[in-house]
Each structure stands twice: as C-alpha cells, then as structure tokens.
C-alpha cells in the first residue's frame, strides 16, 4: 500500500502540472488578443498570470475550479445556504437521490432476475442471451425518450431519472450475479446434495455466499452506470436542477468554470459512491472469511 503512494502522487502531480501547462497554451490567445486591443505588450509572467485567472477561460486552471467548488459548496454551507439553487450541494443531492433510487431498483430487480435465471432453465435460455447482448447496446440513447414520454403523461422530477439509472445498472448486475450464483464448483454442489439439501438451502448456504465477490464487482459497475444515467437524464428536460443541468447551462452560457466544477463534483460523488461499496465489500468479505 505505502509502496504505491509515491508513484501515485507523482502521477497526480504530473497530471496537475500538465493541466496548468495546457491552461497557459489554451488561454494565451485570448490573453494576447485582449492585450493587443489594449495596446499592451505582455511579458511572460503577466501572460501566465492572466491565463490562470480569466473569467471564461477555454480551460480553467485547477485552482480556479477548486475555488469555484469551495464557493459553491463549503462557503454556501457556512452561510447556511447549503440548499440554495446556486449551491452544488443542492444540485449534487438532486443527482444523488435519483442515482440511489435507480441503483436500488436496478440492482434489486437484477438480483431477482439472476436468481430466476439460475433456477429456471427456460428463463436462462430465453433471457440470458438478451441480457448479454444488451451490454453491447448504447442503452443511454433511450434516456431522452424516457424523460420526455414520462413528462408527457405527467411524471417528472426524480422518477424518470431513477428509471434510466435503474435501467443502466440492471444488466451488469444480472450478468455478474448469474456468474456469481453459478460459481460454486460441482464438488461443492455434490456435497450439499449428499447432505440432502434442497434448492432453498443450497441457495442460502452455498450459492448466495459464494456470489458475493461477483455481486460487489457488478455493484461498483452498476453504481458508476447509475450516476452516468442520472446525469444524462438531466440533460433533455431543459435542465433545471442537478449536476447534469449545471453542465448544460454552463455550456449554454460559456461558463467553463461552472462546467468543470460540476464535472469534478460528479467525479467526487462517483468516487465516494464506488468507494463506499468498496468498503462494504471489504468488511463483508472479511466477516465471511473470504479475504485475508
């Protein structure tokens, strides 16, 4: 663990340096134009300072994004306006609630279907090929349609986004869970048969426990997919609330810093969600004695 801290830090530092460098080269044209219009000649240090502090840069520098993030989260929270419409906490919460609702529905349905597939041959043969094939299809293309159609029959807000999230997290969980429930070896299944264990006992005592590593892996994929679904689901309705909406309004009005801070907020959210599942996975597998 400690061994990789230094390399990781090096890579991250290199990425940040690269980002600053790119900010200079991408924003310098604007800075030069402004200076030429004002009849000034920019020295290199002035140029650099300007490229890192523009209002609407082509590429905002990291510290600008961090400032914007702090201004729209921490500072708002300190002022007691954490849930005002200008606060990223508010928008993040909107996206998070849709993600979580969709994730719970999607994974729940996925696990149920996987249990059915493992126990009923006809379900396996008819549904499984479609579940696998559906992973090669850009399902997200139907997101705008779901939003607009549900909107036209009067359902809006949280539910349509959650449906997209559920749909995106559903198939990875089905595929992973079927693999997991089938992971016990013939020997183990035979042993349970010699104990005269029924289908139920085999499921609870052998299949379900041995599927846990697979379940957690697919839960992580499903969680990331859910978040993407919720963000994309916020785009087509004219985008009022949520992280996706912040990105879209930012791109309408050329507010690059706003887009970037929404993007980083989404990244932090994704990292937190996937990290939480990782922690639960660790604790669970440790309790089950599956990982040293």
């Amino acid at each position: 663990m400690m061994r990789s801290v230094l390399p990781i830090l090096t890579v991250v530092t290199a990425l940040v340096l690269l980002w600053y460098g790119a900010a200079i080269s991408m924003n310098s044209k604007w800075a030069q134009d402004q200076a030429a219009r004002a009849g000034l000649d920019l020295s290199f240090t002035e140029l650099v300072a300007d490229t890192w502090s523009q209002d609407r840069p082509r590429l905002p520098a990291p510290h600008q994004v961090v400032q914007e993030l702090w201004k729209s989260t921490g500072e708002m929270a300190l002022k007691g306006r954490a849930f005002s419409k200008r606060s990223l906490i508010f928008h993040g919460w909107i996206t998070l609630s849709a993600t979580m609702l969709g994730f719970v529905i999607g994974t729940g349905a996925g696990i149920l279907l996987a249990v059915g597939i493992v126990h009923y041959r006809v379900m396996d043969m008819s549904v499984m090929p479609w579940a696998i094939a559906s992973q090669t299809i850009p399902i997200i293309a139907i997101a705008p349609m779901i939003i607009v159609v549900l909107n036209s029959i009067g359902i809006q807000g949280l539910v349509p986004k959650a449906i997209i999230s559920a749909y995106l997290s559903f198939f990875p969980v089905v595929v992973g869970m079927v693999k997991g429930l089938r992971s016990p070896s013939i020997d183990q299944l035979d042993l349970l048969r010699t104990y005269n264990a029924g289908t139920g006992a085999t499921f609870w005592k052998l299949r379900l426990p041995s599927s846990m590593p697979y379940l957690f892996t697919s839960l992580k994929i499903g969680m990331a997919a859910s978040l993407v679904g919720a963000i994309v689901g916020e785009l087509p309705t004219g985008a009022i609330r949520g992280l996706g909406a912040r990105m879209l309004t930012g791109s309408y009005y050329g507010q690059t810093i706003q887009i970037w801070s929404a993007l980083i907020a989404a990244a932090i959210l994704a990292a937190l969600l996937v990290g939480t599942i990782g922690l639960i996975q660790r604790a669970t597998l440790k309790r089950m004695g599956m990982q040293p």
């Binding site: 890579v11 992580k220 791109s251």
Partner: peptide, 22 residues
C-alpha cells in the same frame, strides 16, 4: 505502472461523459 494503474482505474470509474460539453 504502480502510479498509473490506480489512477487509471479511478478515472475509468468516473462519469467521463460529463466532459462532453467541454
């Protein structure tokens, strides 16, 4: 390798679609 793999894995889990407007 030790540095890039964890960072790459981390980035692969992020909602990169969000870079689309940029």
């Amino acid at each position: 390798q030790r540095g890039l793999l964890p960072v790459g894995n981390f980035i692969a889990a992020l909602p990169i679609v969000g870079t689309a407007p940029i």
